[in-house]
């Protein structure tokens, strides 16, 4: 049985103008699945529908025995705890310390009173610190998040997502705000952490080369539909043209 099963998902922000038309996908295993496609084709919307930061118009999203599309309130929050998310602009709480940002991955598990007093369990704190050590930021634990560079912030963002003990990791263009070298490092980190924690990753990504290099499976979207679903080496010029349209940009 697959980890995540999306059936006939559709989203219309404005009635009659669907952004996602009819998406059906099965995500399983532990590898990286990369979603590529032109800007405005609904990649971000798809990712955000999965953890319900955006409500889909219709369709089903099955994850760990529940249809996420139908959940609300406490049940929805309980499901979200199991889905980590990494953002394009890191979305760290800038005025909190690095440690607090990583520990915020546990907010779905603790009461408001506990969160207010920062009374996280020693296990959580140990795990947060080990994760920071794992990504090479142990020395920054007490620094404020806004003192970090882009690559460092994204590593903290990844730690926060992994800290949730997720059954699925989502990433919305995690490398789009980073330089090429840092981008590769972040992709490596996501791949390795996903493997170590035995969790599948779904990544929206603009850089086709990065997608081909790190993903085990590529989904090409265009106009709110899946137009390619297969191995990275199956991405031919024809397929890319089908996904992004035009042809001049492919000329070398």
């Amino acid at each position: 049985m697959s980890t995540l099963s999306i059936r006939q998902l559709a989203k219309e922000y404005v009635a009659g103008k669907p952004v996602l038309r009819d998406i059906s996908l099965e995500i399983e295993g532990t590898g990286i699945t990369a979603i590529i496609g032109p800007s405005g084709t609904g990649k971000s919307t798809l990712i955000r529908c999965i953890n319900r930061l955006i409500d889909p118009t219709s369709g089903e999203i099955h994850f760990e025995g529940k249809d996420l599309a139908k959940l609300a309130g406490a049940e929805l929050r309980a499901a979200r705890r199991r889905i980590g998310m990494v953002f394009q602009e890191y979305n760290l709480v800038e005025r909190l310390t690095v440690m607090e940002n990583v520990l915020s991955g546990r907010l779905g598990y603790v009461s408001a009173w506990t969160a207010f007093r920062r009374k996280f369990s020693n296990d959580d704190i140990q795990r947060a610190f080990d994760l920071l050590k794992r990504v090479g930021l142990a020395d920054f634990a007490n620094r404020r998040a806004d003192e970090l560079s882009g690559g460092q912030r994204q590593r903290v963002g990844i730690c926060r997502a992994v800290m949730q003990s997720p059954g699925l990791l989502l990433a919305d263009e995690p490398t789009s705000s980073l330089d090429p070298k840092t981008s590769v490092e972040i992709m490596e980190l996501m791949r390795d952490l996903a493997r170590e924690n035995n969790v599948p990753v779904v990544i929206n990504i603009h850089q086709v080369q990065l997608a081909q290099r790190f993903a085990e499976r590529i989904i090409g979207m265009s106009g709110g539909l899946v137009v390619y679903d297969g191995a990275p080496d199956g991405l031919t010029q024809d397929t890319l043209q089908k996904i992004y349209g035009g042809e001049d940009w492919l000329a070398t």
């Binding site: 709480v93 800038e94 991955g105 907010l107 779905g108 408001a112 949730q164």
Partner: peptide, 19 residues
Amino acid sequence: KQIEAIRATGASFMNTIIF
């Protein structure tokens, strides 16, 4: 964006306010 990230962790409304 910071709020969105906190909500995505499954945090309750009060926890989102606090963090």
